[in-house]
Design a protein around this nucleic acid. Sequence first.
RNA 1: GGGGAGAUACCGAAGUGGCCAAACGGGACGGACUGUAAAUCCGUUGGCUCAGCCUUCAGAGGUUCGAAUCCUCUUCUCCCCA
Length: 402
Amino acid sequence: MSQATPDQALAQIKRLCSDLVTEDELRKRLEISAEKGERLRVKFGIDPTFTDVHLGHAVPIRLLRLFQDLGHLPILLLGDATARLGDPTGRNDQRPPLTQEEVEHNAATYLDQIGQILDLDPARCELRRNSEWFGEMDFFDALRLLGRGTVARLLERDDFRKRMDQNLPIHLHEMMYPLMQGWDSVMLEADVELGGNDQLFNLHMGRLLQEREGQRPQICLTTPLLLGTDGRKMSKTYGNHVPLNGEPADVYGKVMSLGDEPMADWFRLATGLEDAEIDAILAGHPREAKGRLAWEVVAGLQGAEVADAAATAFTNQFKHKQLPDDIPEVGLEQDTLALPQLLKGAGLCPSTSEARRMIQQGGVRIDGEVEKDLGRELSLPTEGEGILIQVGKRKFARVRRG
RNA sequence: GGGGAGAUACCGAAGUGGCCAAACGGGACGGACUGUAAAUCCGUUGGCUCAGCCUUCAGAGGUUCGAAUCCUCUUCUCCCCA
């Protein structure tokens, strides 16, 4: 058990919270836990429907970590059963159902990434899968569970409501999700369930079902949404996410491409810094603050050394306009070829049309010199480092024959 | 089972016989500037052997000199009624 008093713990938890149902219940349960020396069972579920976990997903995981540090028991629930049905959240389209193999693969990848934040030691964390109980359920059990919900109640859910308004499809099995998620809480006898901002409804369902089963209803905690680099909700579909397993340089760069306004949120939700320190940083120069933010994010995932290296590389490349250290080398089969073809062949542009645009807009450099001639023919050297080609500020390659 | 509405490029959304490779907004990309891959401004945003050509507006046919636009069938979605 940690040294924090229940009140201190509550304050730390609330700092990362958007909704808390209810604060009184949580306080009481923290007090009882402290008295009896019992760990609270804190559930967080994640459906292994795709492979990348991003910084937005990390917010509830950080909160889970906080509970762990406060001496409670995180229960990481892999929704392998729910994942196999397809995931209705996020986008308005349902995701295709996955095979068991895909689910297993995703689950393994998830654990790797989550392990960067949470201590997965079995003594400190319970790892469960909801196929444990859903795998055993027969159709009649399922119907009984479905009977616990009503259409009107389900339509209260924001996501469903919106789709109704936009005349978008809602599939029948999607109605199962809140119920399944709620049933997970029953089976796990959760004291607390965490989730993103959009999960509040599903979390409530857990309370409801637990009450009906004669359990103490869980406390629902949602974390604020971390916005993506473009200010919209962070999502892989928008391409505005920062993947937890991304290249350090890429993660660092993505954080640097953030606007100034969202920095405060990012500091609070994506780093482990204290409020006072964050305020001090934000009071300084925005450029320095963002650099610190990027450093903290990378360091939090990969450690201080990696973060230092990423910071140095970034400064060199963008402030001092130096070449990056690791420029990919590409070998092409032709002796000579026109510039647009070369850019495409080297993988610097997806099409020759795109390549031509880049050239015309002055975004292409050959050995450091801007080249605007579309018809420029280049002969590739067979030896040595090759021709240095640069497209925009971020794409580099050394090209030679091979 | 009946009636109605709809499917447009990465996303949202115009267009309803030629002036449409398709307005506009977002995103993305390039350039300038800078405090950074911030902000702002300018530009680009189907492909190609690129002043020309080729393939796109859910899919398949058809009408027409000419179709994203009209007709038929198919697939999918939404609404109303039963």
